[in-house]
Each structure stands twice: as C-alpha cells, then as structure tokens.
Design a protein around this nucleic acid. Structure first.
Length: 435
DNA sequence: TCTGGGGTCCTAGGACCC
DNA sequence: TCTGGGGTCCTAGGACCC
C-alpha cells in the first residue's frame, strides 16, 4: 500500500504593491501634479511618501521637510489625506477581487491574492491574470502598481519588489533559485537588520545561501518565523492568506516625541496625559474598552522606562488611566534625566464593558465620566479635535516652548482659534483628579 | 539613515501548581 | 524537609512590518 502523498501542486499567489502610494494618490486626485516632485507628510514635518520624481532628486523617507526644500526647491509638499488613500485602497482591493475572492488586505497599499484554481473561471492563465490585474489597476486608478506572482507570499513579495516601479515579475518554482541567488538576504520579507547581521556572520549573503541550508541547521540556529521563511524560500506554501476585512485591534498606542527634550516632571506628565487621551479617543471611535496598559518614558539616549499596569475595570475614558499613572509616576520618572518622548499602549481590548466590580459607586462615577466624554466627542466632531481636553494635558496642549513634531499643525489651529471662529479651548481640571 | 509613529507575533524565564 | 519533573500562565522584551 502506498502512502497518499499530498501532492500539493503549486499555488499561484499574487502580491500587489502600490508605487509611492500616498504621493501617487495625490497625483491621481489632482492630475496637475503629474510629473512633479510630490511629497506627503507635511503635518509631521518629515516625508512619509514621495513621488519618483522626488526620489530622483534625492528625497528619501523620513527626511526633514526643511532639507527637502533645500535639495528640491520646486517640491510640492502636501499633508497626509488618509481618507483619500483608503478610498484608493478599497478600489485596489475591489479590482483584484474581480479575479478571486481570496484577498488579504495586507496594508493600505498592498494586498495578496490567491489565484489558485481560478484559471477555468477566469478563462485565463495565471500570467494573464497577473497582467490583466496590473493593467486594470494602472488604468483605472491612474497610478502604477508593482506586481509579483509566485508560489507563496514570501516569493510573491520578492516578485513585486524585483522591478519597481510598475513591474510585473513572475517567479515559477522551477527557476526560483535564479531569483534567490540575486536577492540579498536582508531584502527578504521578515528578515530584519538583526537577523541579516547574524546570517551574514554565518557566511550567508544571498537568499539562495539561506534557502539551501538544511532545515535542521535552520531549526538549530533560528526561531520559528525564520524556519517558516526558509520553507517558503524552498517553494513550499506556509503562510496562509488572512482573508476578509481587517479584524479589530489587539492594541492601540499613542506616542509623541517633543523637541527639545525635557526634565520637567509636570510637562512630561502632561505629554503622557495627552497621549492617553488620544489613545482613548481612538478606543471610543472603535467602540472598545481597555483593561490593561503600558506607558513609557523615552530618555534622550533612547532608553525606555516602562511600566505595565492592570485596571480593575474596563474603561474607554482616560481619567482612571491618568490617575493610575500619577500614582506610580515617581517609580518611573527620575528628576534630572532628559526625556524626549512618552507613549502609551492600551491592551486587552474588548467590545463590552463586562466588569462586575461596583464598589464604592465606582461604576456610577465611571459611567458619568463616560457620558461626559460622549458629549466631548460630539463637541470635537463639531468643532475639531481637541477642542476640549483634560486639565492634566493642559501644558502639552499649550506650551509653545515644547511643541512636538506636530508644531506646524498646532500653530495653524491656534491661528484658526484666534481668527475666523470663536472656538475656545477649555481645560477641565476636574476630570484629571478622578481617583 | 544618529533614529517618527502605529502595529503584530514570538520566546525566554519566572511564578505557581500538581 | 528535600527532591524531580511537568504543565500553565504571565511578563518583559526582542524582532519585524508598513
């Protein structure tokens, strides 16, 4: 009796990657920008995406806008417009979905598609499908995409990165090794700087060097994710596609760097308070509650001093979190140390408020505070974000000396307040003191 | 890349229990 | 009181991605 071997014949996995996606969306939205150096990220003061014309002039990611203007005086710098980008993103998914329903919406500018078994229904070869998808995307969205077609996600990713922009690279299992021999180990999806350095020390420089190591060697030297990458580089299909729309958050975090750095306890606390408030705004927008959080202070030399704390009850408002941080503040904050950023991460997110604890009327109080925040969210929706904020965040919202990297935006809003509208910013010290 | 911001997953080690 | 071994849960932190 013979073994029934799973003759898992090759899959056809497509990876689609928008070229300079944010900048390209801006150009698609406003064709007058076509052919010009376009950069997005104005609100952050650094480039987050740049058109190929801007790249040709030497603009790179995270470059300061002041420097960009220096090397490229005719650059067009735009604030990020995520509403537009996600609209184009949805259209990208929809176009790919014409050819298969098995789509992973991997990120705003990328998706995977499993074309396996779709030759008959589409009456096309896999190669034709890849070409047609790219053609549809390019012509209908007014920007270019780079596409890779191969036998799994890791190799499809190599395909889409092989030629950029506007590339279409098909990597069959039988000539995978030709691509791997020319693909540096550090460019593999999932291999970062750390592992790259480690593998190089082991004499591995190309993807092929790595792929041809024995599974035993890989098991002995590397952790699970790298064993899986190794298997995919050998043409196996390991990583399934996560189908359907993106699931809920596992965590929500907010962090902000301030320049110059500071040693001022109350200022740093207010920065953290502001981050907590913003994280809670996002929490409520997604109708979530948190039961646990970590916060950190980042020192001038990039060390993190962090603490993880558990709440007695799920919350979606910042008061209890801020009060908890205040209680332990002196175990983390050290006088005389220069801090450059604070941050908070909310975890154990859930949809319902399942708490049963209701001692000393805590529940009622929290409910009341929650109602205030519902009203505040409405005010914010009407008059703009942060029209109302916690008293404990006051300094972070007003200190001109310590404007964060969002300084330009703050300035612009402050101007609005003085100018055509009568909007007032209201600090609510009371909320900050709820215990 | 002298370093912005928002995420996910994995692992090692300690605590605790049987 | 000392001992071995094993399982589970939790936490800190590493590594990576866009």
């Amino acid at each position: 009796m013979q073994h029934l071997t799973h003759h898992s014949f090759p899959r056809a996995i497509l990876h689609v990657d928008g070229d300079a996606f944010f900048a390209s969306c801006e150009v698609a939205k406003n064709p007058a920008l076509r052919g010009k150096p376009v950069v997005t990220g104005k609100e952050r003061g650094i480039a987050s995406s740049m058109s190929y014309e801007a790249k040709a002039r030497g603009v790179t990611r995270a470059m300061r806008l002041s420097e960009i203007r220096k090397i490229c005086p005719d650059v067009i710098i735009l604030p990020s417009d995520y509403e537009t980008y996600s609209l184009y993103s949805q259209r990208m998914y929809e176009i790919v979905r014409r050819y298969t329903n098995d789509i992973e919406e991997y990120s705003i500018d990328e998706c995977f598609a499993d074309l396996t078994g779709m030759r008959r229904p589409n009456n096309m070869s896999y190669e034709e499908m890849a070409m047609k998808i790219k053609h549809d995307l390019d012509t209908e969205l007014g920007m270019t995409f780079s596409v890779g077609l191969s036998v799994n996600k890791v190799t499809a990713k190599i395909g889409s990165k092989w030629k950029k922009p506007s590339g279409l690279t098909i990597i069959h299992g039988y000539n995978l090794h030709l691509y791997l021999s020319k693909w540096p180990i550090g460019k593999i999806w999932g291999i970062g700087p750390n592992t790259e350095m480690y593998l190089k020390k082991q004499g591995i420089t190309t993807s092929l060097d790595f792929a041809t190591k024995s599974p035993e060697w890989v098991r002995a030297h590397l952790s699970k994710p790298f064993q899986e990458i190794h298997a995919e580089l050998n043409g196996r299909f390991i990583y399934p596609l996560t189908l359907g729309v993106k699931h809920d958050y596992a965590s929500i975090s907010k962090t902000r760097t301030f320049t110059p750095s500071s040693t001022d306890s109350s200022f740093i606390f207010s920065q953290l308070s502001k981050n907590i408030e913003n994280a809670c705004i996002k929490l409520r927008r997604h109708h979530l509650f948190t039961k646990r959080f970590t916060f950190f202070l980042k020192t001038q030399d990039f060390r993190y001093h962090a603490l993880e704390l558990k709440l007695l009850q799920e919350v979606c408002v910042p008061e209890k979190i801020v009060a908890t941080v205040r209680e332990v503040w002196n175990t983390i904050y050290r006088a005389g140390i220069q801090y450059r950023a604070t941050g908070v991460t909310l975890m154990e997110l859930s949809h319902e408020n399942v708490s049963t604890i209701d001692m000393f009327g805590h529940h009622e109080l929290i409910d009341r505070v929650q109602k205030i925040h519902e009203a505040v969210d409405l005010v914010d929706a009407k008059y703009g974000k942060h029209s109302v904020f916690l008293g404990s965040s006051f300094r972070a919202m007003t200190d001109a000396a310590h404007r964060g990297s969002r300084g330009e935006q703050t300035e612009r809003r402050a101007h609005l307040f003085r100018g055509e509208t009568k909007r007032r910013r209201i600090g609510i010290p009371l909320l900050g003191t709820v215990k």
